[in-house]
Structure formats: C-alpha cells, structure tokens
C-alpha cells in the first residue's frame, strides 16, 4: 500500500502535529519505506488465526468500588502550564 502526501497530512491532522511542507515531504518518504517493510506481513497466511492483543492469556481483574484517592489538586497542578481557580485553561473552545 503506497503512501500519498495527503495520507501524511491526514495522519498529522488526526495526531495534532503541525507539519510544514518540507517535513511532510520527508515523512512521506520515511513512512513510505517503513510501510513497504511492514507490507511483508501481507504475505503471511493468517487464515483462521485469532488476533493476539496481549501476550498473556489472562483476564481483567476487577477493583472493589472504593474511594481511595484524596484531593491532590494543588500538587497535580504544579506541573500545569496554565490554571486559574483550580481549572486548567485552554484557548476558548467554540461549540
């Protein structure tokens, strides 16, 4: 599967990465070669093989419904770029 400039732009947009045209062109080239390598997978016969998401065949453990966390807002917001009145600030969101 070949990769077009538009594919890279689309992925960059979905991933919220600003790319200028030169960078995009470089990634078209890089990603194209990576995908070419990845395309070897298409040659593997996987008929009837179930996908493997986790290496171990274990199942989800469930947590008891208990409140174990305390308010640590000040601590957590010390590493925040912009806060006011306990809120994280972002440029105005228009709905």
């Amino acid at each position: 599967m070949s990769l077009e400039h538009a594919d890279v732009q689309r992925a960059a947009h979905l991933a919220r990465l600003a790319l200028d045209n030169d960078e995009a062109a470089r990634y078209v080239d890089d990603l194209g070669r990576i995908l070419e390598m990845v395309d070897q997978l298409q040659a593997v016969d996987t008929e009837g093989v179930a996908p493997l998401a986790h290496p171990l065949d274990t199942t989800q453990r469930l947590r008891a419904d208990e409140v174990t966390e305390t308010d640590q807002r000040d601590r957590f917001q010390r590493c925040a770029p912009a806060v006011a009145n306990g809120l994280y600030l972002v440029p105005r969101v228009v709905e």
């Binding site: 990845v38 593997v44 093989v49 996908p51 493997l52």
Partner: peptide, 18 residues
C-alpha cells in the same frame, strides 16, 4: 485509521500470535 486497520493492525496481531 479507517480503511487500514484490518490490513495492518489486525493482521499484525494475527502474526503476533504466530
């Protein structure tokens, strides 16, 4: 992304099992 998921991700997970 849409249109590629099966060919790449699912396939890779199948190969992972192998």
């Amino acid at each position: 992304s849409e249109g590629f998921f099966e060919a790449y991700y699912k396939k890779a997970q199948q190969v992972r099992r192998l």
